[in-house]
């Protein structure tokens, strides 16, 4: 069953008098427990469709169905609530909060998602998650003292600590070397399967494709294969 459906989504940007259509009608269904990778040349619209699907910008036309509801018709507050509770984000740069330790980054996400877990359950969840991403030994470290790979592991942990349904990852390995990139992809693959996440990822690195379940190629605002 499809957990997330993108239906005939178009996006037009207006630059003064010139209007440019970035997405020309994208249709896509994401499945639970699968990683779907969007690939394609620069300007093909892959990052735009990811950010629209994640509720970070609006589509010009089309529908985005999540949990049976059309997100394009929701209020900004409803979309924010979905981002906080049902979505997780991993960005190209880890974008960790510089003045919070590793465990505090995860606590922040639990606070933002207004989790119903008790304080003890939250502490246990953080410990479990840090074990899962093999970062429990660095739980009191600040982002500035972590390597690029470690930061991305913490970013992944932060993205899924509140048990989201959908994980959006925008070039999560772009700032890492090959060895660390493979480590991050193995982690994403394992977490998507064990936690039954629905993961949509943008990448330009074809070496990462063996770790994904589906590959969607985009070109000039269309899905071509």
């Amino acid at each position: 069953m499809s957990a997330f459906i993108i239906d005939e989504v178009k996006k037009t940007f207006s630059n003064g008098e010139v209007e440019e259509e970035i997405l020309k009608g994208v249709n896509l269904s994401l499945k639970e427990g699968e990683i779907t990778a969007l690939i394609g040349p620069s300007g093909s619209g892959k990052s735009t469709i990811l950010t629209i699907a994640a509720g970070l910008q609006k589509a010009s036309t089309g529908e985005i169905m999540f949990d049976g509801k059309d997100m394009t018709k929701m209020s900004p507050e409803e979309v924010r609530h979905i981002r906080a509770t049902d979505f997780g984000f991993v960005f190209q740069s880890s974008h960790l909060v510089p003045f919070l330790t590793v465990e505090e980054q995860l606590q922040l996400m639990l606070d933002v998602s207004e989790t119903k877990m008790s304080k003890k359950e939250q502490t246990n969840a953080i410990e479990e998650m840090l074990k899962l991403v093999e970062m429990e030994h660095r739980k009191e470290s600040y982002p500035s003292s972590l390597s690029g790979g470690e930061r991305q592991r913490v970013a992944i942990a932060r993205a899924i600590i509140h048990r989201p349904k959908i994980l959006f990852a925008d070039e999560p390995t772009a700032s890492l070397d090959t060895k660390r990139s493979k480590g991050v992809m193995e982690l994403l693959q394992e977490l998507t399967r064990t936690l039954k996440l629905t993961t949509l990822m943008v990448t330009h690195d074809e070496e990462m494709l063996p770790y994904v379940d589906r590959v969607i190629t985009m070109r000039d605002g269309y899905i071509v294969e």
Binding site: A84, F87, F89, V97, M109, V112, R158
Partner: peptide, 16 residues
């Protein structure tokens, strides 16, 4: 701006 943007992206309320 970057920090606030990320916090908003992950769902933090503006009032927070």
């Amino acid at each position: 701006i970057g920090l606030y943007g990320i916090l908003k992206a992950i769902g933090m309320k503006t009032i927070s």
